[in-house]
Design a protein around this nucleic acid. Sequence first.
DNA 1: GCAAGAAATGTAATGTTATTACATTACCTG
DNA 2: CAGGTAATGTAATAACATTACATTTCTTGC
Lengths: 165, 165
Amino acid sequence: MAISAQSAKAFEDHNHQRCCGEVLEQAHKLATSGGLRLTPVRRRTLEILLEEHRAMGAYEVLERLAKDGFGKQPPVAYRALEFLVENGLAHRIRRLNAFAACMTPGQPHAPAFFICELCNCVAEVQDVSVRQAVEAAAAGIGFGVSRANVEVVGTCPACHKGRDQ
Amino acid sequence: MAISAQSAKAFEDHNHQRCCGEVLEQAHKLATSGGLRLTPVRRRTLEILLEEHRAMGAYEVLERLAKDGFGKQPPVAYRALEFLVENGLAHRIRRLNAFAACMTPGQPHAPAFFICELCNCVAEVQDVSVRQAVEAAAAGIGFGVSRANVEVVGTCPACHKGRDQ
DNA sequence: GCAAGAAATGTAATGTTATTACATTACCTG
DNA sequence: CAGGTAATGTAATAACATTACATTTCTTGC
Ligand SMILES: [Zn+2]
Ligand SMILES: [Zn+2]
Ligand SMILES: [Zn+2]
Ligand SMILES: [Zn+2]
């Protein structure tokens, strides 16, 4: 049995201010050490994604950026988001046509996303056993994995509880 | 270790005529026994999806349907596709904004999709261990799973071989 | 410091995917 | 065959995403 289910901050009571702060700091470190340019739009985009543990559509991000004085056209948001995704600072959630900040930037990645269909919160979990199962299945059919999306829809602990009343 | 990687027809030499035929027959059975109405548009849509082991966009399906004398507007395709998905005769591949015929309709379902980024073919694999890993991860964070998307991008056996020359 | 090139940003236009709303037709049921 | 329900057809629009190109900012070798 492989190591499984790490903490899913999104579903736990936690100091979110600090939670964001840590991720932003980590992002900053990665930028300086890795030669990435975390420009104002990009940084602001990451901050916006970090505000809540949920995914945001590109146009929702764009609206926020426009209010903050950045450009008003879709490429402004899409470019910033693309940069974040390519550099491991955000993830794209295909199921939602949306983006979420990465909660463990810079670390080895095999994320699974758990999306609550009631409150829309999204938890990113680094789960080795899911990845291993995918790799094993791929090996069984001679498939070479380059990227895997694991997106699970259901109810988060809080909403799950509420529903059973 | 759980049972893993069943056959992935899409990646194997096989009698595809027969492969389609079986799925269509199975779909027909399900329809009659389950009280589903597999109307002409819906049946034709399924046939179109079955022609190749790849996913098709709704507008691509629509074009084909229109040529066959059905309606020319998006809802024609989207409705037929929605019907097929809801009744387990097709799957939606979020990663591709596209749809693929289900290769094992009527049977218990925990599909993972393997998408070749070179030839665009898509294999549907019923893999218990992937599902188990997802369930375990979910249990670990108190999440109640209702649906899971597992979509893996990479290279299929044929393309993988070709690339190593 | 300052030109030349590269990277990032801003904007307009357009392409692609998906849904809403409503009229019409086909189907079932008594 | 009337009355209700499910399915289909069409128009309009919404939501998501990309291309193309002008402009600015940053870097780098001199
Ligand atoms: Zn937090
Ligand atoms: Zn991550
Ligand atoms: Zn086949
Ligand atoms: Zn299936």
